[in-house]
Design a binder for these strands. Structure first.
Length: 316
DNA sequence: GACTGTCAAGACCGT
DNA sequence: ACGGTCTTGACAGTC
């Protein structure tokens, strides 16, 4: 089991902007920003290795506007050696990686341009991971998409574009793509339906499952999701762990039991995490902590798991 | 230096 | 049909 956190490390000051506005796009700005982003990523990975946090979600904003038509720059050539170096470091210390393209990647949209944009975005992620020379255990995690008034049709549209459009969704994407159950549209059972017809592994999100499920127990749900992974090629199953932000959520005007307030907790609730560990005892997976204070909670989780000093490392 | 509107991209929901 | 909301962090313009 590896513990990780997504994209941002609050212990390492950035110093430089990580992105910029489309309106001010220039090749020079892109190069400078990417250069800074790669240096920053290097620092984060070193921090992670030092601290035994060996699962990390790389930010989709590493190369700003990479999939936008405005970007004609071959960043994958220009930064090839830097990217390879990062990839070597990741492999050397056996760091598990993933990326999570954001809400705009929707493969089952009825609008063909939305699907095309989505695929361009997925390709950017693939080129990035491929240029780092990472194997197919480095995953790209997305949600199923919209419902558009008819869930079965919408799911079948997902399956169809995945299975029957090899010119759009090619092997480079398929070897990395995984789907995640969400908190209101596509739950675990829906993801299983898609998995059965596509073979796409499922990233189990514990918080989303709490919000939206079909009554499965945590452990059996987790086992179902984990069984969709081909351990030899996909690697150990990944899961997302988080809990809801307490505070004024229960007073929100749209509060209800299923959705709660939908936001991720500020910091890890050790009691809930303890309970989660107890209920999932015996299962092995790589766990991403989607919690706002990022590495801080991840370190706490490591401590609770007794993994903190599991490895001895050279100093940096 | 603090404050705040806005940002490439989508979809849902209530009115 | 339409505007607000989801959820999110940081840029970028304003004071």
């Amino acid at each position: 089991m590896k513990i990780g956190y997504p994209c941002i490390n609050n212990s390492i000051p950035r110093g430089t902007p990580s992105t910029f506005r489309l309106a001010s796009y220039s090749e020079g700005k892109l190069v400078q920003t990417v250069k800074n982003n790669l240096l920053h990523l290097n620092q984060i990975l070193k921090y992670n290795v030092k601290n035994n946090l060996l699962f990390f979600r790389i930010s989709s904003d590493l190369i700003p506007f990479a999939s936008h038509p405005i970007c004609k720059f071959a960043w994958y050539n220009f930064f090839k050696s830097e990217l390879l170096q990062i990839g070597d470091y990741i492999k050397k210390y056996n760091i598990r990686t993933s990326m999570h393209p954001d809400q705009f990647v929707i493969l089952n949209s009825p609008k063909h341009w939305t699907v095309e944009n989505s695929i361009r975005e997925l390709k950017y992620h693939c080129v990035l991971l491929d240029t780092m020379s990472l194997d197919e255990t480095a995953k790209l995690q997305i949600h199923v998409g919209g419902v558009y008034g008819n869930k079965l049709e919408a799911m079948d549209r997902f399956v169809k574009i995945y299975n029957n459009n090899a010119h759009l969704v090619d092997h480079l994407i398929k070897k990395r793509l995984v789907i995640e159950n969400d908190d209101r549209l596509y739950n675990l059972k829906d993801c299983i339906y898609i998995n059965q017809q596509t073979g796409i592994p499922i990233v189990f999100d514990s918080f989303h499952h709490e919000c939206y499920n079909n009554g499965e127990s945590l452990k059996s749900a987790l086992e179902m999701a984990m069984s969709t992974w081909n351990m030899s090629s996909d690697g150990l199953p990944m899961i997302d762990y988080s809990s809801q932000n307490l505070g004024n959520g229960t007073h929100h005007k749209n509060y209800n039991k299923k959705r709660r307030n939908g936001k991720h907790a500020q910091t890890i609730d050790t009691k809930l995490f303890e309970k989660f560990l107890k209920e999932t005892k015996g299962l092995d997976f790589d766990m991403m902590l989607e919690i706002k204070d990022k590495e801080k909670s991840a370190l706490r989780a490591l401590q609770m798991l007794g993994l903190k000093s599991a490895i001895n490392l050279p100093n940096f």
